[in-house]
């Protein structure tokens, strides 16, 4: 089975992969918004998604995860899809508040960089036709597409920022409890 979906929130993505796994559709691969599934036992796997610090880190990451009984399925740029056989213990890559904050900060940085690139592209797309005094329908289409992605990225950035803030507050509350 193949499904197409554009998702900017990795937690929603994980939720959706786990829902499919519970229906007996085990996720195998991601490519340009396409999710590839194969039939499996219902609820056999639990999924999670990580963001590598760098693509160069992938070999080390994969070895470490395999050593820890976590199956690495697919890498998409710095994003990595992993899963574990459901042994009723649950599965989450990040288990403490500090590493969760760090994880969301890493995602925020990526979205921020991508947003800045989109905004630069948007200005180029707007100003070049203006300088040339020739705005065609294709320019409008490109501008709309880039603006759409820029808005999505900004939304994703603020969402990740809220999540990092939530865990930061949790950490501060633990500090108070200490």
């Amino acid at each position: 089975m193949v499904k197409f979906k554009l998702m900017y929130d990795k937690d929603e993505e994980v939720l959706s992969l786990n829902e499919e796994a519970n229906k007996g559709n085990a996720f195998r691969k991601f490519f340009l918004g396409f999710y590839f599934f194969e039939k499996s036992e219902e609820g056999k796997y639990i999924y999670d998604i990580d963001l590598l610090s760098s693509c160069k880190d992938f070999a080390n990451f994969r070895k470490f995860m395999n050593d820890s009984n976590v199956e690495v399925l697919n890498r998409w740029y710095r994003w990595v899809y992993v899963r574990k056989v459901n042994d009723s213990k649950g599965f989450e890559l990040y288990s403490d508040v500090d590493s969760k904050i760090e994880h969301y900060h890493k995602i925020m940085k990526l979205f921020k960089a991508a947003f800045i690139i989109e905004v630069v592209c948007l200005f180029v797309e707007i100003f070049i036709p203006l300088i040339n005094k020739r705005m065609e329908i294709m320019n409008f289409i490109f501008i709309s597409i880039i603006a759409f992605f820029a808005i999505c990225l900004y939304g994703a950035y603020t969402k990740m920022s809220a999540k990092a803030g939530f865990y930061k507050q949790q950490k501060d509350n633990i500090g108070l409890a200490d």
Binding site: D48, D50, F61, F64, M65, S68, V70, V82, K89, G90, E92, L93, Y94, S95, D96, S99, E102, H103
Partner: peptide, 13 residues
């Protein structure tokens, strides 16, 4: 009580 996530452990190591 403490179940370390593989991602947490990887970063910490």
């Amino acid at each position: 009580r403490v179940v370390l996530g593989a991602g947490t452990l990887y970063g910490a190591i």
